[in-house]
């Protein structure tokens, strides 16, 4: 398979069978300094309130130590005397303990589809996914949240332990860079394993092309466990959105090697694009049903605009 070596990536749809070197963008670091500075101004928003492990910048459901008052309760032995409300004791002569909203850290899970199909396109889908993942991870780390990365395909499942603190961005980038892109897609299986391993809820961002013959709905259900807030970014290459080919072809699936003989004509291209739109409409429909944030992205879109504009509009980032 093409993706196994990590090299020899098929990327240009116009030059069949030609093995190109990596796309020029891939020579660039996943994140550069200017981009990082820009990212620092962004932070994740979480619409739900999750239990954090450490005190972070997030308001926690737990009542804890912070400056934001939450409630009172009766004092019981062992409570911290510092949080007794002496004013009420003076008025009512009863001991009440002040309860505050505890500010906790947020868990961001970035789940990346690393199957062979992600290794196509110009710009390559996997590169786009990794860069987006790195950017999101950085934003998250900068906001003192915890970031957990998962890469999966049918054979592969890699998990990067939740990391916290900006300094961990390099280990995340290392992880991303060393993440091999090959194998068949099995969205449902990968997401099931993730759900089993995930101990705390948080924001889950799925980066995938969703081109799984078995479908995507089951995978969405797995990712929605633990009251996760799910963002699905469907990454497609321009060649998938608007195929630019013609003539008698034998289309080979890069994952399965399965051939499909087609004679590409204008008519067939029209049918294909109708099919693609129907596919995306189906995803949108299911996403609405489960309250999932769905965003189709083309790999030739600017990743900066994605982060600063599109995701901001969706409410993932502010």
């Amino acid at each position: 398979m093409i993706g196994q070596t990590g090299e020899g990536v098929y990327s240009s749809m116009r030059e069949p069978g030609r093995v190109l070197s990596r796309h020029k963008n891939e020579e660039e670091p996943l994140l550069d300094a200017a981009f990082l500075r820009h990212l620092e101004q962004l932070q994740l928003i979480c619409k739900k309130i999750f239990l954090g492990r450490m005190k972070g910048e997030r308001r926690s459901k737990k009542r804890g130590v912070s400056i934001e008052f939450a409630d009172y309760r009766d004092y019981s032995k062992g409570d911290d005397l510092r949080f007794l409300d002496w004013n009420i004791y003076g008025r009512l002569d009863r001991l009440f303990t002040k309860l505050f909203h505890e500010e906790e850290d947020l868990y961001l899970y970035i789940v990346i589809d690393v199957s062979g199909s992600m290794n196509t396109g110009d710009p390559r889908k996997s590169w786009f996914a990794k860069r987006a993942a790195a950017a999101l991870a950085y934003i998250s780390l900068a906001g003192l949240d915890r970031v957990c990365l998962v890469g999966f395909s049918e054979e592969r499942y890699r998990w990067l332990q939740p990391a916290r603190g900006k300094s961990r961005i390099w280990s995340i980038i290392d992880f991303l860079e060393q993440l091999p892109i090959d194998g068949e897609t099995s969205l449902a299986e990968g997401c099931r394993r993730f759900a089993l391993q995930q101990s705390r809820g948080g924001v889950v961002v799925l980066l995938s092309d969703l081109l799984d013959p078995a479908g995507f709905e089951e995978a969405f259900k797995h990712l929605l466990q633990n009251r996760n807030e799910l963002y699905v970014l469907q990454i497609l290459s321009p060649q998938e959105l608007h195929p630019d080919m013609y003539g008698a072809l034998r289309l080979l699936d890069v994952e399965t090697g399965e051939p499909v003989e087609v004679t590409v004509t204008e008519e067939l291209l029209n049918v294909y694009e109708r099919r693609l739109r129907a596919f995306q409409a189906e995803i949108t429909r299911i996403s609405h049903r489960y309250g999932i944030h769905y965003l189709p992205i083309a790999t030739d879109d600017s990743i900066e605009r994605l982060l600063t504009s599109t995701l901001r509009r969706m409410g993932l980032i502010e």
Binding site: P16, G116, S117, R250, L252, D253, V254, V262, T263
Partner: peptide, 21 residues
């Protein structure tokens, strides 16, 4: 008809398109 091999990310959509055609 000699067809030219053309690797693509997934034949999923093409298969369905062909059925339409």
């Amino acid at each position: 008809l000699k067809r030219i091999d053309q690797p693509i990310s997934s034949t999923l959509l093409w298969r369905k398109s062909l059925e339409d055609l």
